[in-house]
Design a binder for these strands. Structure first.
Lengths: 207, 207
DNA sequence: TAGATTGTTAATCGATTAACAATC
DNA sequence: TAGATTGTTAATCGATTAACAATC
């Protein structure tokens, strides 16, 4: 699949989970086939954009018919690497970290938080659901042992750069940061910011 | 300020809080002046982009000198309407909702959650910090009474469309949605999605 | 067959970056 | 003054949308 991909923009990649989500909804409703036009209406997107996005990865539809729902779900899962288990470390067992950890237990799609890290002695050694809370000093060892590939940062802003450094040193190359600070990472690390504060502040503009 | 703005893209607006955050950091460190070049280095952005973004709203810098930190902070706050109190309603007192509500108590910048809504009789009537939890049926009345202008949705996906309908009916025009579903809103409502699931799923692509 | 819809090329639109005169 | 840096125009780059031949 990835073999014949030219350069896929992040905008395209970020739309794929939205397609996937709606396709799964269609599947649950026993709808077997869908056109880019129908998808576009439901998802508020241009049908040409949907076709173009999918066409980057292969020919998944049938002219005159549309896309077979179950087949397209399979394909998008493959593209997003959601066809295998991906283990995730979460660093920072505060309110937000705990909320995400709990949320994780309901998540499907093979993305699973397997270890939580903190530095608070009162939290280290306890657990949230099936997830143990380890000391941050154990990060590197646990990441290696559990074959963790992704990291989520939910520590306060002042601690975030140190945490991301440790994740990178431990070999984690894909990181979602909730701390309200701009972090520096090497070019081969994929860092995404998902900071609530900046989100709300930018929304205020539209009041 | 807004008077002479042509059309400001969302990309520009979303960068303003990032500038603001770093400027406040500079202020805390007693740095009085900064150039677009320095900002660009620290924030991993192109200096021309920073100058252009700011120039949409006025002439805030001085040629040969740069930008006065304290003045630019004031200006960005004005642009983002963070120079007055903005009251926010949060709907859905689950793990994520509670985490955000707690987080809110540490938030500055005049953005403040003043009411929480849920339908669970066990939660309604209790409170989180200074925020009371009301029944969803009271939404419209409380929004009017407290002059709430913004909404945050942290209910499960199946309930989100109904909640956003009620927020819109109550007059809320700016909404941040954490539920993993595409919502329909009238054109005059500004809805932003901040869904953790799609964020993580799209990141998996880069593994 | 006729109608529908894809995959893809071309056209358009918009956002980012470079360049530089103005000027502190 | 000389060096630095803005504000802004022009150039470039990239993403979205329209159009349509291919074909189910």
């Amino acid at each position: 699949m990835q073999s014949k991909t030219p350069k896929i923009s992040e905008a395209v990649v970020r739309r794929l989970p939205i397609y996937l989500r709606y396709l799964q909804h269609l599947f649950d409703m026993n709808i077997r086939t869908v056109s880019s036009h129908e998808l576009g209406q439901k998802l508020d997107m241009n049908p040409a954009q949907i076709r173009k996005d999918l066409a980057y990865f292969g020919e998944f539809g049938r002219k005159g018919i549309g896309y077979e729902v179950i087949y397209l779900i399979e394909k998008i899962k493959q593209i997003l690497k959601l066809d295998r288990t991906i283990r995730v470390a979460l660093v920072g067992a505060g309110h937000l970290g705990i909320a995400i950890s709990n949320y994780n237990q309901y998540l499907k799609e093979n993305l699973t938080i397997t270890a939580i890290f903190d530095t608070d002695p009162k939290k280290v050694g306890t657990s949230i659901g099936a997830m143990n809370i380890y000391h941050l000093d154990e990060l590197s060892a646990i990441v290696a042992k559990q074959e963790i590939e992704m990291g989520i940062i939910t520590v306060p802003a002042f601690a975030a750069q140190e945490v991301v450094n440790k994740l990178v040193a431990a070999g984690v190359r894909t990181i979602l940061n909730f701390a309200p600070v701009t972090l520096k990472v090497p070019a081969n690390v994929h860092l995404r910011n998902a900071d609530l504060t900046t989100e709300l502040q930018s929304l205020a503009y539209y009041l």
